[in-house]
Each structure stands twice: as C-alpha cells, then as structure tokens.
Design a protein around this nucleic acid. Structure first.
Lengths: 189, 189
DNA sequence: AATTAGATAGAACGATCAATCTATGTTGTC
DNA sequence: GACAACATAGATTGATCGTTCTATCTAATT
C-alpha cells in the first residue's frame, strides 16, 4: 500500500483517538501527515471513507495484537486472563484515550452502517472468541452467557479506565471474571 | 423556571440523545422547540452552556428516577436488584439511545471540564451509592471493590444494549452481580 | 527524450455553524 | 394607557467545514 495512504491512516487514527471524529477536520490531518489535499481524496473518496478505513485498520491491528498476546498452548483460563491483562496494559499506555469503536458508536450511532458495522463486528468477534475458549470446559449455554458478561466487563472497564484515569479497573474486572468462571465451573461439575 | 428555558432543555435533551452533541445545530433545536434565537441566547450564553444545563438536568432526573425505583425498606440485595431492573426497563424503552453522559465523554473527552465533570460525577455517585448499600452487609474493602465492578457491569450493559439492540443484557449483568455479591458474602461470613 | 501517473500547493466553492444585531411584537403590571 | 420585560423573526457576520478545481512539479517507465 502507498506510503502516503499509510501515513494518512496512521495520523488520522491518532487524531481521531485523541479528539474524536467530528472535531478533527481534514486540514488538521493533512498538515500533521504532511500530505496534499488531493492526495487524500485520491485515496479516500470522502472523510467518511477515511474514517471507515481507520476503523478497519484499527480492528485488524487490535485483533492481531490481542491474538499475539494469548498463548495458544496455555490453559483456557490463562488465555482469558491474557485478554484482560492486554487491556490493563492498554489502559496504562500514555496514548490511551478510550476505545475508538465506542467513540464511533457514540458519535455516529447506528445510523451510519458503514461506520457502526465495524464497531459492532469488533464486539461480536470478542464475544465469540471468548465463548469458544469458555466452551472448552463449560457447556455451550453457560459459555455464551459468561462470554456476554466478560464483554460487558471489558467494555465497562474501558470506559471507567478513561473516566477515572485508573488502569487498575482491569485487575478488578479480571478478579470478578475469575469468580464467575469458577462458579460456573464448579456448578456444572 | 421560564417555560421557554424548560422547553429548550427538553428538546435539546431529546435531540442530543438521538443524534449526538456535535451534529445537532442550534437551528434544529430552535425550530423543534418553537423558540426564537435570541431567547436561547438570553437563557444560555453559548451552546456549551446549554449542553451543560442538559447534562445537569439529566443527572437530576436520572438520580431522582433511580432513587424512586428503590424501596428504602427493602433488603440491600433487593435495592441493588432494583437498580439493575431500572436499567433493563430503560434499555427496553423505545427512546433509548445510550447514555448521554457516555456520549458526552466520547464526544468531548475530558478536555472540556464544564462538560465531562458531570459525566464523571454521575459515575462517582453511582459507585458511592452502591458501595454504601453493600457496606450494610460487607466489609468496607469488599464493598468498594464490588461497587466498582457493578458500575463496570452497568456501563458495559448500557453500551452493549445499544450496540446489539438487546435489553436482556441487564438480566445477565444482574445474574453476574448476584453471584459476585453472594460469593463475597459467604467468603466473609 | 518523451510519456505517464501521482503528488504538490493553493485558491475557490458552497454549505453550515455559532453567535450578534436590529427592529418589531406581545404580555402583564402599576 | 404607559411602562417594562421578555419573545419574536430575520438579516448578518465571521469562522470552519468538506470538497472540487487548476496548474505545477517529480519520478519512474518506455
């Protein structure tokens, strides 16, 4: 892919993450990326398409990073713990400014499918991934139920980490997750 | 308070909830409220002040509604259950479009204190309220820890309810909350 | 050397936005 | 009936926005 296009996605991701989609104008992206106006419109038909590309890229990057942090040989519980630990590291990173997908959902709602689809897909992928891990030692129904809860915990933790500037919410979230998993495990055994 | 001012807050709350703060312009509020431009600027120095007033009002309304739905004579667990039940009813309401405070945080971040302060205050009030309820039958540390978890669950449920158009997440969230409360209770007894 | 594709800077357009100004109209009170 | 307080409609300003247009420049390919 063109290095200019690459640069645009990278800079736009940064600015959108820090300030939101609406408040960041095209000009600001152009200046910070060192790219001409028409170069942007040659690669992306409109700002919305740039936003879509940013979210798409972000989705690929996050899933790759998450999957890389989870040892495939580890136990199911260790795999789930790794997912929560990944979030804690993320919350503590200096550039952390909340989840870009939440922001997209909050700013555009579900009215712009081109944008909200990716945000919802991310949530679904996470839910299914954790459900599959849980299914290795829990019945299908319990696995699906708890996976839904784990997603809620992670979503809530992401919000609270930003609102309170407190990365340790991830630890508390994992402690709760552990209790719920244990309880479901002993109850079915 | 002036009926016009009242009307402006009501209409602005509606529009902001449905479409967000940035996309809704002054003109749209004026037309829908049937109010003249200068009337708005006589009551609110700027759009930001209108947003602040909307959030302030929303905070008062939500807390009043929540407190009214919780029987003071009920048991601690029943009180917490009432809070989750309130959320489920909210998620199922036809006008539900996510939490206005989350939206404010997502659109403005923590850079605009006049706006983000109220959103954070709401979260803190909820945390302290549930912590106090939990303290009636749990040690202080456990109560604070679980209160933080319950807030995460509610925040996550609010997000997922909107993203998936699924009000039943509240029930799952409460089931998880119940397990966590029971476990903390038996562990300390 | 000629051609072509892509990038550049910068002006310009039309639309929208928050906010201000002006001048008229309505309402209730003394 | 006069006064004061508030509300009205609408033009207007200045800024910002996404997008388009034009014309020049660079670099690789033939």
């Amino acid at each position: 892919m063109s290095p200019k296009k690459e640069q645009l996605i990278k800079v736009a991701t940064n600015l959108f993450s820090r300030h939101g989609f609406h408040p960041v104008g095209i000009d600001r992206i152009l200046v910070e990326a060192g790219v001409a106006r028409m170069t942007l419109y040659n690669h992306f038909p409109s700002k919305d398409d740039l936003i879509s590309a940013v979210l798409e890229r972000r989705y690929q990057d996050i899933m790759a990073s998450l999957r890389a942090s989870v040892e495939p040989t580890a136990s199911a519980k260790e795999q789930l713990h790794a997912i929560f630990a990944w979030h804690e590291a993320w919350f503590g990173a200096p550039e952390f400014a909340g989840c870009l997908f939440e922001r997209a959902l909050a700013e555009f709602g579900t009215e712009y499918p081109k944008i909200s689809t990716i945000a919802i897909q991310y949530k679904q992928t996470m839910t299914e991934w954790m459900r599959d891990i849980l299914k290795t030692f829990l019945p299908e129904g319990a696995a699906a139920r708890i996976a839904s809860i784990l997603v809620m915990l992670l979503d809530g933790a992401t919000i609270d980490a930003r609102a309170f500037h407190d990365p340790t919410v991830a630890t508390r979230a994992w402690n709760a997750a552990e209790v719920l998993i244990e309880q479901a495990n002993t109850r079915q055994a």
